[in-house]
Design a protein around this nucleic acid. Structure first.
Length: 604
DNA sequence: AGCTAAACTTAGGAGCGCAAAT
DNA sequence: ATTTGCGCTCCTAAGTTTAGCT
């Protein structure tokens, strides 16, 4: 029975919820592990958004939702300069409140943050204010800070009923602005709110931290929707920057953000058909790599010996991307962003070569800041030829020089695409992540495990991927404390176990000396007790290991972006684990396409 | 071919609300 | 009843890739 048939049966119950995935399900059965092949459809899909690049036929929405207007502070709350209260203009006051609200944050103490803030703040001041307010250290935002703290308390102290009212108002907003109609289907919008003004805080040592992120007006916003639809109405007294009808793109609205000059978009939620199809397509490309990867690996190993330095660098770079799941590493404009790198942008200072290290030969020590200024630290033994090449690439360079000076991401991707249509650097991450999950699940799951043990295995497999992709998080603030608590629990359990063991021994001795029915029962009972305690202890210790190993590892990112959901769905089906144990509601919505189309024998 | 702008995916953290613990 | 812990949602920054231009 092919999957299309199954889909039709299921679609009777699914039609409301997943109606928009019918087309994906069909394509899925054709392109992947189906038995019936439809070459034409497959080709059409491979071309992806091609086929004239149309993303939709009709698109209707209400436009973005704007943040509330600024509410001036009560007269009783004042800002002070040099110890004297100063009444600020509305514009200057608003920016002052942004800073005042952040006073508890560590970064308001950073010099770059302060300088950027103060510079931008002064631009919002009136002439007189600018004359007066010349030094940040003379500014006292304390009262304003206190005012917002009190306000937060007030909000917390609202009655249940009042909170309920607020909640209902919020969901009304979602109802009204949170959805659009794409090709006639009601779809959830991802971010339907315009970003409110505030102070920019980049990640890591960002040179622009503290700069003023300005309020976005309707006049800044471009609306994208279909010609014949109800055009969104701008707020009273305002107009849109532009209304366009471009169905080659997926966004509903956009504006230029002032800090970095980049464009911000309003787009669909991951649960939408549009996003789901692309997600599905992403994993199909990664699966295609499976059949090509041996050839590609042979190719890049061969490149290590090339006479052309450019090819050698390419060979080593792709090797890193494949083996270590590094990101491509685009060039960045210096001084505009935090200093972070990926593969192609690695500098000599980011690696150290060790002929021998900890009993291993040809070890490369990586130490650099990657995306979001997350540190990548790894010691990796590599092939002799790679090692030699790295030495060569580093010759006559200073630490700040590029390691791969002859190549960039565009070149890399261009040659990858020649090996396989659709192949780019990031496909390796998807491919290796999903392959790892599949392997680990096969290895770690046993049919006769309890559901809980299976989930633990799943998390372990997930963690292997997160480690591969270097997905980190800050250790939870309460980590040490909760660990200690668990430790105490374990100690207690151990004590109980020791006690029980002693009692068992006694019971056995008694039984040996004088066997009665009663003494036998006692032995049995004690044996059971010991066994139970041992199990409980093991479970606690497992939990401890699990938590320890998860201390700085974030599982969510890989789960959401790198792991083919069909692997997880099939695993759940095969081992009788309810899907809810693996995916929460949001995740199930996002992966509806996979949940619907996957059978238990699916292999990535 | 190389550059920049635009489009889209991936990322960690803040904050909130709910449930478990005390 | 209150506090604490934790998962979920939202937020938006920071990447990659593609498109478009010269």
């Amino acid at each position: 029975m092919n999957k299309y048939g199954i889909w039709v049966v299921q679609s009777i119950t699914y039609s409301l919820k997943v109606r928009n995935f019918a087309s994906i399900a069909c394509l899925g059965s054709l392109a992947s592990d189906c038995r019936v092949k439809n070459i034409e459809s497959e080709r059409r899909w491979e071309e992806g958004q091609s086929l004239d690049g149309q993303k939709w036929k009709t698109l209707e929405h209400k436009g973005p939702l704007f943040p509330p207007e600024y509410e001036p502070l009560p007269k009783t709350v004042s800002f002070s300069y040099g110890g004297k209260p100063v009444s600020l203009s509305v514009a200057a006051e608003e920016v002052a409140t942004f800073y005042a609200k952040m006073l508890d944050h560590e970064y308001t103490s950073k010099e770059v943050f302060q300088r950027n803030f103060f510079t931008d703040w002064r631009k919002e001041m009136t002439e007189e204010e600018r004359d007066l307010i010349q030094t940040l250290s003379k500014c006292d935002f304390g009262e304003i800070h206190g005012y917002f703290l009190a306000k937060a308390e007030e909000k917390k102290a609202l009655t249940k009923e009042e909170k309920q009212v607020l909640k209902e108002e919020a969901s009304k907003q979602v109802e009204e602005y949170g959805y659009c109609y794409l090709d006639g289907h009601r779809e959830r919008i991802g971010n339907f709110r315009v970003e409110p003004p505030g102070l920019f805080r980049g990640r890591g040592e960002h040179p622009k931290m503290g700069k003023l992120k300005k309020r976005v007006l309707p006049e800044d916003i471009t609306i994208n929707c279909s010609k014949d639809s109800n055009i969104p109405v701008p707020p009273r007294g305002h107009h849109w920057k532009k209304v366009q009808h471009d169905n080659a793109v997926t966004w509903l609205a956009s504006w230029v953000e002032n800090v970095q000059g980049s464009i911000k978009y309003i787009m669909l939620n991951p649960s939408s058909k549009l996003k789901g199809e692309r997600d599905w397509q992403k994993f199909e490309i990664a699966r295609k790599l499976k059949s090509k990867v041996d050839m590609i690996r042979r190719q890049y190993c061969a490149d290590w010996k090339s006479r052309e330095m450019k090819k050698r660098q390419r060979g080593v770079a792709v090797y890193f991307i494949d083996k270590l799941a590094l990101r491509a590493g685009n060039e960045k404009e210096e001084g505009e962003t935090a200093d972070t790198v990926g593969c192609c942008s690695l500098r000599v200072e980011h690696i150290t070569l060790h002929e021998k290290l900890d009993g291993q030969e040809c070890v490369v020590e990586f130490d650099f800041l990657g995306k979001d200024s997350i540190r990548y630290y790894n010691k990796v033994p590599v092939e002799k030829r790679v090692f030699k090449n790295l030495k060569l690439f580093m010759e006559n360079k200073i630490p700040e020089d590029d390691l791969f000076d002859r190549i960039n991401t565009a070149y890399l991707n261009k040659t990858l695409n020649e090996s396989m249509t659709g192949l780019t650097a990031k496909v390796f991450r998807t491919f290796n992540a999903s392959t790892t999950l599949q392997e680990q699940l096969n290895k770690l799951t046993d049919a006769d495990m309890s559901v809980q043990e299976k989930i633990l295995s799943y998390n372990r497999a997930n963690r292997a991927v997160a480690i591969l992709c270097n997905h980190q998080r800050a250790a939870p603030k309460t980590f040490e404390k909760s660990m200690q608590l668990l430790q105490e629990k374990i100690a207690l359990k151990q004590e109980q176990l020791d006690e029980a063991k002693k009692e068992l021994k006694e019971a056995r001795n008694q039984h040996k000396e004088c066997s009665t029915d009663k003494s036998r029962k006692l032995v049995d009972k004690q044996e059971k007790r010991v066994k139970k305690l041992e199990e409980q202890l093991k479970k606690l210790q497992l939990q401890m290991t699990d938590r320890e190993e998860n201390k700085v590892i974030a599982l969510g990112t890989s789960k959401l972006n790198y792991l083919d959901p069909r692997i997880s769905v099939a695993w759940c089906k095969k081992f009788g684990v309810p899907i809810e144990k693996i995916y929460n509601k949001t995740q199930r919505d996002k992966f509806a396409w996979a949940i619907d189309m996957t059978e238990e024998d699916y292999q990535f």
